[in-house]
Nucleic acid binder design. Structure first.
Lengths: 141, 141
DNA sequence: TTGCATCCGGTACCCGGGTACAGGCTTACC
DNA sequence: GGTAAGCCTGTACCCGGGTACCGGATGCAA
């Protein structure tokens, strides 16, 4: 808020606080290639440009969309590095397919669970109910 | 196949093969308390009763229902140990609630992803589309 | 100039469910 | 009695996403 004279660089603790992230996480993301290595003070302390905070919120948004850090790294790295930029739209569509598959799996599990409940199985090992669904829990896996 | 004279005990490799499980997994389950320590041959080799194979298929069935190994251990351990036996039906109902919650989360993610797709965002970092949903991806988390 | 907060690098640990490897011992069969 | 397959214990590693701790160096303000 006060001055930004000479260069508004932030130290790691400031970036972490503004982005709502642990300081260790910052270095972790650096190792994973999600954020580029920032400039350093003469003593070796990291000096981040303020955009890093924005970048971190973008990373967190992408994570919430179900992308892994590796995928986020790819998505962020487009433009730089010369590799063909991965299209976010295409990636999002592929991710929707993944999510749908996962939901389908969970629905099958849910189905099997309701069968267990309605059949009245009382115990895994000694189920006394007739037509116990336990041994035949296939889930088409 | 041949004789079962004196005791139809199985060695770890036989149990593993019949249950479709790795031998290491057997010992892992033993450490985790899912299967009790079997008898030993004079030389120290494990000698399993044949029921162990059935138990392993039960464990795998429970896993497919979404129970963690710790939960399976509890469910199996009922009857023995004197603790009040956890009711499988109740556990299954609770698990259904968990599954439903997870499905709801994934549906929200799916929703957000379709917004990204339909808004036409091309890039995480430099999205040129109007009313880009990326910064406001809340998912009510 | 001194004191304290912060940062540094490196390493180890956490969760869950296993898998793999090393170096030795047993068992089974011929 | 030889030989190979199988088993033993103990330990380390894998995935993903971080978190924690250590001893030492820096930064900043009074």
């Amino acid at each position: 808020m006060s001055g930004d004279a000479g260069g508004p660089y932030l130290r790691s603790g400031q970036v972490a606080e503004r982005a709502g992230v642990n300081v260790q996480t910052l270095r972790y993301y650096e190792r994973r290639g999600l954020i580029t290595e920032p400039a350093r003070s003469p003593g070796g302390h990291r000096a981040y440009p303020p955009e890093t905070v924005t970048l971190l919120t973008v990373i967190k948004a992408a994570q919430r969309l179900g992308f892994t850090l590796e995928e986020v790294a790819e998505l962020i790295g487009d433009g730089r590095g010369g590799r063909p930029a991965p299209d976010l739209r295409a990636r999002a569509q592929a991710k929707i397919a993944e999510v749908d598959a996962r939901i389908a799996e969970l629905s099958a599990v849910r189905q099997a669970l309701t069968q267990v409940v309605s059949a009245g199985c009382g115990s895994l090992t000694r189920c006394a109910c007739p037509d116990c669904p336990l041994p035949s829990t296939d889930l088409a896996e």
